[in-house]
């Protein structure tokens, strides 16, 4: 997956209209009865952490919000209060943990927000003819590699890997350009949330976000295959023995 440089976002001041986190009541006290668990839909990540629905969050502000909340909510804090309090704290701290994880990653945050706004990203992405050409090249090289490995032909395998790597680099560049497009669209979406913003700006930005995200998933899958082919001796994920 492409590494996005969230810290490149200018650290903004926390938005003035930040609501309190979900589990904090109006007196600023933690209320462990806010969410009853299964059956009751959990509040969304922005609500849990008390953040406005914006795409470009200051990561430092997000970290601070989360840390102060988890310090109050973690079940270890409630051990002395008995098992019932621990269970409730587990439930509520899991909300905070999950929300933090969902919002920490920029692209996940975009997906989540679009979903909350009722515009979930459909993954049916139609690649451009140029991209399709690259996919075909990679598929051929992957087949060649497999054949070469099966035949025990190291020279042919190395050649195939070379081709895969070359196309992989092109795809990596395309992925980086996509990230830039996503940031640009995210900025426009955030700006369109201002009360005086023109209504069609938001829908325009949303359309760009959805298109870019669909293409990003497509490229990520391709890049994962490229990576797996280039690291044959190293399992890409730890496996349980």
């Amino acid at each position: 997956m492409a590494i996005l440089n969230d810290s490149a976002v200018e650290p903004g001041t926390p938005p003035a209209e930040s609501p309190p986190p979900f589990v904090v009541d109006s007196d600023g006290k933690v209320d462990l009865d806010r969410w009853s668990g299964p059956g009751e839909p959990p509040p969304d990540a922005f609500t849990v952490l008390g953040l406005p629905r914006r795409l470009l969050l200051d990561p430092k502000h997000l970290d601070l919000r989360f840390r102060s909340l988890i310090r109050d909510l973690h079940p270890d804090r409630f051990h002395v209060s008995g098992p019932d309090a621990v269970r409730k704290a587990e439930r509520h701290s899991s909300l905070a943990n999950d929300a933090y994880r969902a919002l920490r990653d920029f692209e996940r945050r975009v997906r989540l927000l679009l979903e909350l706004e009722g515009h979930a990203v459909d993954e049916k992405f139609r690649p451009s003819p140029a991209l399709l050409g690259q996919v075909l090249e990679i598929n051929e090289a992957l087949d060649a590699l497999q054949e070469a490995l099966a035949d025990g032909a190291p020279a042919a395998a190395a050649a195939a890997r070379g081709e895969i790597a070359a196309t992989g680099r092109e795809l990596g560049d395309a992925r980086q350009a996509l990230s830039d497009r996503l940031y640009d669209a995210a900025r426009r979406w955030d700006a369109a949330q201002a009360p005086d913003a023109a209504a069609d700006l938001a829908s325009l930005a949303r359309r760009d976000l959805r298109a870019a995200l669909g293409e990003a998933s497509y490229l990520d899958n391709l890049l994962a295959r490229v990576q797996a082919a280039l690291l044959p001796t190293q399992a890409p994920t730890p496996t349980q023995s």
């Binding site: 988890i70 439930r91 899991s94 999950d98 933090y100 994880r101």
Partner: peptide, 12 residues
């Protein structure tokens, strides 16, 4: 629930 998720973690 993905690996390396902070715990407690939940999924519904």
């Amino acid at each position: 629930i993905q690996r390396n998720s902070p715990i407690p973690a939940s999924a519904t």
